[in-house]
Amino acid sequence: MAMVLLAAATGCHSRKDAPATAFYYWKTVFEPDSVQQILLQQAAGQRLYLRLFDVDWNAERKQAMPNAIVHFVQPAVHLHITPVVFITNRTLENLPATGIDSLARQTDTLIRQIAARANLNYTAIQIDCDWTLTTRDKYFQYLRTLRQHSGKLLQTTIRLHQIKYKERTGVPPADKGVLMFYNMGHLNARVQSPSSIYNKADAAKYLTSLPRYPLPLDVALPVFSWVVHTRSGKVIQLYSNIRRAQLENRQRFEPLGKHAFRARSSFFMAGVYIKENDILKAEETGREIAEKAARQLAAYLPPLQSRTIIYYELSTLDPEEYQVEDILDLTDYF
């Protein structure tokens, strides 16, 4: 596989005005394998948006706390890292307004500590949060304090609904936004519902507002798939380690259309308990779907002199589906 990837990297992707390519890395253990390392080097020029930790509300202690802090099994000193912190909306809902500035300073301190231990140099910080109308003011204050205290460029993720309804949701006080062009549909148990990762019809409802958004935008595109596990009409879990090929086992599953499968009996698969009559639905983002997403978004995205296309996510990317040239071809749409 490594040789295939190396050969694929010899394509013609040298446009001076082409956007930069990068990957997200979201696992709690930093240990990219050899194939992922080649993709990172040859497709992304070693640019990585690395989730360092989450910030969540601890109901027992009644305070915001970091969790899922990244552990470095491999060094990352040679990479161009942008630290990413995910903060849950419930943290902002529960934290008093008087604690927002302190949380921002604590976030910056922990980023610095992790970066120092791993010998990471960084010039920007990215915050991922799906804020709401009720948490907007707290979140924006958090961003202002973090931006001032860190002295770094500040990026924040932007969802499509926050683009369309910017008058209500507000425009965050950041240097740049990152438009998350995925997870745009409704995750539900209906077999015939379109993919919640990406579907053209849902995206089209929001894109006409994109040219008027005042914050310069990078782009986050999906190159991941998952399986939605439902039981008795309710979604119980998502899995990125189960593939369609496993669901196409006719001895274990009965097909329900093109993407869904009903369990014929109860069994364990990939460490997951599957109960008889459970339904597993494959929501996939292969090259064809990713190209549709890129073409659709590129038609509305206003030009930007320095833009980065970030692919989610390196640790779960299927190397049989995406090689170096495939990633670069997607970036070329922009």
Rank of each mutant, 00 (worst) to 15 (best):
K258G: 14
R307G: 02
Y182F: 14
A263F: 06
N249A: 14
D278I: 12
S225R: 09
H186S: 13
A294W: 04
Q296T: 02
S232I: 08
R231I: 06
A299P: 00
A201F: 09
T316P: 00
G185P: 02
L314W: 00
P194F: 12
Y239G: 10
L256P: 02
H259D: 10
G233V: 11
E276R: 15
W226S: 05
L187Q: 06
T230Q: 05
T316D: 06
P214V: 11
T308I: 02
L238V: 09
A260F: 14
K200M: 12
L215C: 09
R264C: 05
S315Y: 00
L314H: 01
N277V: 05
L304N: 06
R243L: 15
S225E: 05
P302F: 03
Q237I: 05
A220T: 06
L187R: 06
Y300P: 01
F224I: 11
P211Q: 13
A260T: 13
L297V: 03
T316H: 06
A298Q: 04
Y213P: 05
K205M: 08
R190V: 08
Y198A: 03
I279E: 02
Q237M: 11
K292W: 04
A203E: 04
M184N: 09
F268N: 15
I310W: 02
V219A: 14
A203Y: 06
R212F: 10
R231G: 07
D218H: 08
F267S: 10
T230C: 14
A293G: 04
A260R: 12
M184H: 07
K292P: 00
V228S: 08
E276W: 10
S306D: 14
M269W: 07
I279C: 10
S306K: 09
Q305L: 01
L187Y: 07
G286E: 03
I236G: 12
Y300N: 07
R243N: 15
Y239T: 09
F253C: 05
S315D: 07
A294N: 03
K281I: 09
Y273G: 09
V223E: 02
K234S: 14
L247I: 12
E284T: 14
L215S: 09
L297Q: 01
A260K: 13
A204Y: 09
K234H: 14
F181L: 12
I274T: 10
P255L: 15
L221N: 06
T208L: 08
S266A: 10
L317Y: 00
I309V: 11
Y182E: 03
F181V: 10
S209I: 03
A189H: 13
P214G: 11
L297H: 00
A293M: 07
N277E: 08
S209M: 07
Q246R: 10
L187K: 06
L304H: 04
L314Q: 01
A245K: 14
A298T: 03
